[in-house]
Write a protein that binds this DNA or RNA. Structure first.
Lengths: 226, 226
DNA sequence: AAATTTGTTCACAAAATCGTCACAATAACC
DNA sequence: GGTTATTGTGACGATTTTGTGAACAAATTT
């Protein structure tokens, strides 16, 4: 049975969330402030944490960063609407998902399930990403799609690794340039397009679906079908 | 029962790791700095050491080298993400595995088990590498390919040994220089190319496939077909 | 000391990659 | 439906990286 830690100062919300999660078969523990949350995490790591951003004593950001210093346990943030999602999901904080308040308990449960399912699919190791019909090995610099090895150029590999290690998240061309090419790349952002094109071509060989989706007007996203 | 020594300055992390290892049936001892760790190792050798890289008084690397002067006890390094991969790879020589922070305790336990299992299977000294149609004997400094003995020069042998003892993993020229030639070799990294060329030439004699692959833009990799 | 073997560097050829452009295709909008 | 903005695509040349042979230096052996 999987354990979810709910960190939330409002007792009503805490109870509500707990009830719904228990109904889905999760074991639920709760903490009403950041310090208690940290202490609990340190004594036994839950399988997932639902973390409110606004907390007494120590806010959600700090708690999240503190946890991330050592642990990779998935974290779902509860935020007031209007918070920048970029900052929450971004590399800086490293939350796995976020839910804007007010939220429906049903949606919350769905997100918890989704994150846990995603994590289960991605095997333990830090250096190999696994997806259905696609695995990416950072040490060997090898990509396997549908049982066949695929030859990628360095840039193609770096690009794929970046996108695949943040699945379902949209990145603009500028963000991709900054992350894959390096800080403040001076060139044309359309360069990304060309590399995406070549990647798609190489990846589509088998009956594999197109795993890099275009988000019109925004950028690109690594799809994961599950 | 097997004993694991956990060397880590952060008390929370130390406790966390200990709890998870004890749950798996290991006897756990802890040390909060390098000097104490060394003292403990000298009084009683554990079956495995989990060693943080960042330690007060004496850093993990130094501890590792110090231990390695006399002992072959397996060591798993805890490194902060963002550590230069060069350094991590450097550790790999002395360490048996490494885990990047943040990590999941489950993964940590899995790695500890894996390392101990590997060591148990490997039995005594690990001085001969066997691959299909190729065996490399470190004691005799002999290489046999397709039943025939092959004469290698010292550098060629060291290079082959290094690559073959980390199969499938890509190393840049700089990393190879650092590992095979020695720390901070001043010379030209293209020297590696020449030695790779000669190695390939000598190894290809039989119907043997080219076991040293070029990974364009990244470096070289020892292939293993199995 | 001479000869042989080993290691390093260099220059050039060969190969692969990368970025950019122009233009076609597509989606969004009025 | 037509217009505009955005994305897909193919091709080309410049650039980078690698393979290779040979010359030179260093080390080792005879």
């Amino acid at each position: 049975m999987e354990t979810v830690l709910v960190v939330e100062d409002d007792e009503h919300v805490r109870e509500l969330v707990s009830v719904y999660l228990r109904k889905e078969g999760y074991r639920v523990e709760t903490a009403e402030d950041g310090e208690k949350a940290l202490a609990m995490v340190r004594s036994a790591v839950p399988d997932l944490i639902v973390l409110d951003l606004m907390l007494p004593k120590m806010d959600g950001w700090t708690v999240c960063k503190e946890i991330r210093k050592t642990l990779t346990v998935p974290i779902i943030m509860l935020t007031a609407r209007g918070e920048e999602s970029d900052r929450i999901l971004g590399l800086e904080l490293g939350a796995d998902d976020y839910i804007a308040k007010p939220f429906s308990p049903r949606e919350m449960v769905a997100r918890v399930k989704a994150v846990l399912r995603r994590l289960k699919h991605a095997g333990g190791s830090n250096d190999v990403l696994h997806f259905p019909g696609l695995s990416i090995d950072r040490n060997a610099c090898q990509v396997e799609a549908g049982g066949k090895e695929i030859q990628l150029t360095p840039k193609e590999f770096d690009l794929l690794w970046f996108l695949a290690s943040h699945p379902r998240r949209v990145y603009s061309r500028e963000q991709i340039l900054e992350q894959v090419w390096g800080y403040e790349y001076p060139g044309d952002s359309r360069t990304v397009d060309t590399h995406i094109k070549r990647l798609r071509e190489k990846l589509k060989n088998p009956g594999n679906k197109n795993c890099i989706a275009t988000v019109w007007g925004k950028g690109y996203r690594f799809e994961v079908t599950e």
